[in-house]
Every structure is written in C-alpha cells, then in structure tokens.
Amino acid sequence: MPLTINGTDHDFTGDPRTTLLDFLREDCGLTGTKKGCDHGQCGACTVLVNGQRINSCLTLAVMHEGDEVTTIEDFGTAEELHPLQAAFVRHDGYQCGYCTPGQICSAKAMLDEAASGWASFVSEDLSAPGRLTPEEIRERMSGNLCRCGAYSNIVDAITEVLEAGR
C-alpha cells in the first residue's frame, strides 16, 4: 500500500533508516516541514498522520505504508493562505519562520483534538474540558518551541481562528 502525502501516493523503497521527516524533505522536496532537533524535542517537524499531529523526526518512513500524511504544503499557498496561516501573518505569530509550519500543523490538529473533547494537563474537568482558553492553547501548543518568542502572538492567532469558527 502506498503512503499518501497531501493526497499524492508515494512508494517508499529507500534506506529503512530514513525518517518520515527526511523522506518529506529530501526525497519529496516538501521542505516546509522543518528539522529543528531531530529528536522530538522541538516540534518543528510536526505533520499530521491520519489527522493526528506527530513529530515526523521520530518515525520511520517505512512504517507509514497506507497512512495519509498532511504537511504544511497542503494547507494553503503563499497566494491563497489557509485561515490559520493568514492569522499567523496578521498576528505576527512567527519571526524567523522556522518553527512556523510545525506550529500551524500543530494548531490545526489541536483544534480538531479539542473538537473531539480531548483534555489537556491544565483541564480542570477531564471529562468535560470545555472551550479552549488561552491557558489551554498554551499547554496544547507547548510541544512547539519558538526561540524567537512569538508565543503570545501565536496564541492570539489561534484564538482568532477558533472564534471565527464558532
């Protein structure tokens, strides 16, 4: 079974050591997904696999036969931005831009997780975590480091999209 990336089938036949991240960047030319630490410690490589966000550096391409991978390239183009991307631009939710695709993939998945009722460590009530407060967004986005320190604007950008969708 092929691996589907942004709707396109790919057959992986390379070195089994190849991470999903390196496969995306080096073999598929999808360099929007970034390598920041290569050890699951920064979140820059966040992509969606079957709709869930993961660190693509800590998984092997060979393990993803039949999976559907979504990267930043599937969100929107520079000319036609996805609402999250547009909100990041408007709120200056980035500076150097290196963590940004990971932040946006992560934010997308976070909104879906919250819609499914998933709780976080800061949720008062595990069974009914309620709406995404700024505190909830901060905890849920803590797997994406931003050394430029754009966190406050990132939270504002996501909040705007969240409220627009309500």
Binding site: R25, G32, K34, I72, L81, Q85, D92, G97, T100
Partner: peptide
C-alpha cells in the same frame, strides 16, 4: 504592516539553507 515574506514563511515556501539541497 504584515511582513511581506510572511506568506512564504507560513506556507513553508521560504527556503532555508539546508533546503537548497533538493
């Protein structure tokens, strides 16, 4: 004003050094 290169950065199409290899 928004950064002019913002759309490239948020769409993953701004190219950083290592990415020229492709």
């Amino acid at each position: 004003l928004d950064r002019p290169e913002g759309p490239l950065k948020v769409s993953g199409s701004a190219t950083y050094a290592a990415e020229y290899r492709y």
